[in-house]
Design a binder for these strands. Structure first.
Lengths: 216, 216
DNA sequence: GTCTATACATCGATAGAC
DNA sequence: GTCTATCGATGTATAGAC
C-alpha cells in the first residue's frame, strides 16, 4: 500500500480500517486474510469491522477498488503531455515503473484476483479511464494515433501495449524472487528504476522507428 | 494443469490425488483450496489424502514443485539448438508461449506464491536448471554469450531476460481480463500465439541488431 | 459507536473399523 | 489401503450491554 493517500468520504475509524485491511489483504490475499488481524492492526475489534462494512467480502471489494483507482490515477495524473511518441514513451516507462514499484503487492494481488470471475474488476478500470476522457485503454489509443501520424511503423497497438506493460510490470511482480536470486539488487531503489527504464527504452524504440529514421 | 503428463514414482491413487490437487490448488490457491474438494475430484475421501500426504501443506508443495519442473522441462526440452542468437530468439518466443499458454493458472499461481517466504521456490528453479547443465538462468547465459561473440549489441543480460520473459508471460497472466475486454480474442488459439510471437520478435530484434547490421 | 461474549459453520486432521 | 465418524481449532458474523 502507498502511504499518505487520502480518501474522500470516509470517517476516521473507516480510514483506519481501510488502511489496515489494505495492508493485510494485499499481503495475504482474500482467502488468507483474517478479520482478527485486520482488527488488531487497526487498533479496534472484529465487531466494528462488520459494523462499518457488512462482510469480509464487502470490505475486500472496497479496498481493492480503492487501490486500483489510486494506482490508475497516479499514472494518469503524472502523464506529461509530450510533443511526440518517442518522448511520450520515454516518460511513460519511468512514470509507470515509479508508480508500481511501491505497489508490488498490489500487482501480485491483482494478477491473482483477475483470474476469478466473482465480480467485475474490468469495470473499475474502464470507469477510471473514462474519468480521464479515454473511452478505452489510453495506451492503445495513443499508440494507434502515433501510427496514423506516421511517427512509428505500422504494428498492432494491442500487442504493443501488452508488451510495454509486460516489460514494465513483470519484474516487479517477481520482486522477491529476483532479489533472492541476485543478492545485490534492490528493486525499490530509484537507481534500479532509472537504469531499467533506459534499458527498456533502448530495446523498444529502435524496433519502433519508421524505416527512414533507422540510423542506429 | 497440462493433461497427460506422466510422473514417475507415484502409485495410481497418488496420481489421481495429485491430478485433482493440481487442478484445485492452481485455481483456488493454497488458502482457497479445500481438502474436501480435492478428495471429491479425485473420487476418494479426505482421510486418504492425509494417508498419502501427511498434510495439506505437504501435498501443496509436491504439486507445486511438480508443476514448476514440468514447465521448465517442457521449455528446456524443446529448446532447439540454434545457429545464431537471432534464430534462437525467434524459436524461443514461440516455444515459451506455447508452453505457458495451457498453464495460465500456474503462472498466476506462481506469481502469487513467489511473494511468500515460507519455503524456497528458488531452489526448485535452480535445481532444474542444473539438471540441464546450466549453473544459473539459461537465458541470461545465452544472452551474455551472444554479446561476447558480437552477435548483438552490448546490453544488460539480466534486464533483457526480464523484458523477454515479461512480454511472453504477462499477457497470459491477465488472460481473463484481456478476453473479457476484447471479446473476439482467444488467447489459447494457436493463431493468436503465432501472431503475437511475430509482433514480439519484430519489436525486440531491431533493438538488438549490432549497428552494422541495421538495415531496417 | 464501541465493546465482550458467543453462536454457527467449516476446515484440517485423526481414530478406528474393515 | 480405504472407509465412516468425529475431534479440536479457527473462522465469519451477530447479539446485546454500555
Amino acid at each position: 500500500m502507498v502511504k499518505g493517500v487520502l480518501m474522500e468520504g470516509f470517517t476516521d475509524t473507516e480510514q483506519k480500517i481501510i488502511n489496515a485491511a489494505t495492508a493485510v489483504f494485499l499481503e495475504k490475499g482474500l482467502d488468507g486474510a483474517r478479520m482478527q488481524e485486520i482488527a488488531d492492526q487497526a487498533g479496534i475489534n472484529k465487531a466494528l469491522l462488520h459494523y462499518y462494512f457488512r462482510s469480509k467480502d464487502k470490505l475486500f471489494r472496497t479496498v481493492f477498488q480503492n487501490e486500483i483507482k489510486n494506482l490508475l490515477r497516479t499514472i494518469l495524473d503524472s502523464a506529461q503531455s509530450s510533443q511526440n511518441f518517442e518522448q511520450f514513451l520515454q516518460s511513460f516507462i519511468t512514470t509507470y515503473m515509479k508508480a508500481i514499484a511501491p505497489r508490488t503487492n498490489l500487482m501480485r494481488f491483482a494478477i491473482w484476483e483477475f483470474g476469478k470471475d466473482n465480480y467485475s474488476i474490468v469495470d473499475t478500470f474502464l470507469q477510471t479511464f473514462r474519468e480521464y476522457g479515454y473511452p478505452t485503454n489510453p495506451l492503445v489509443e495513443t499508440t494507434q494515433k502515433a501510427i496514423d501520424e506516421g511517427q512509428i511503423r505500422s504494428l498492432d497497438p494491442a500487442h504493443f501495449t501488452l508488451s510495454l506493460l509486460g516489460v514494465c510490470i513483470f519484474p516487479f511482480m517477481i520482486k522477491p524472487f529476483i532479489e533472492k536470486l541476485i543478492p545485490g539488487v534492490n528493486m525499490s531503489d530509484e537507481h534500479f528504476i532509472e537504469q531499467r527504464a533506459k534499458e527498456i527504452y533502448a530495446m523498444i524504440w529502435n524496433g519502433l522507428k519508421p524505416p527512414d529514421q533507422k540510423t542506429g
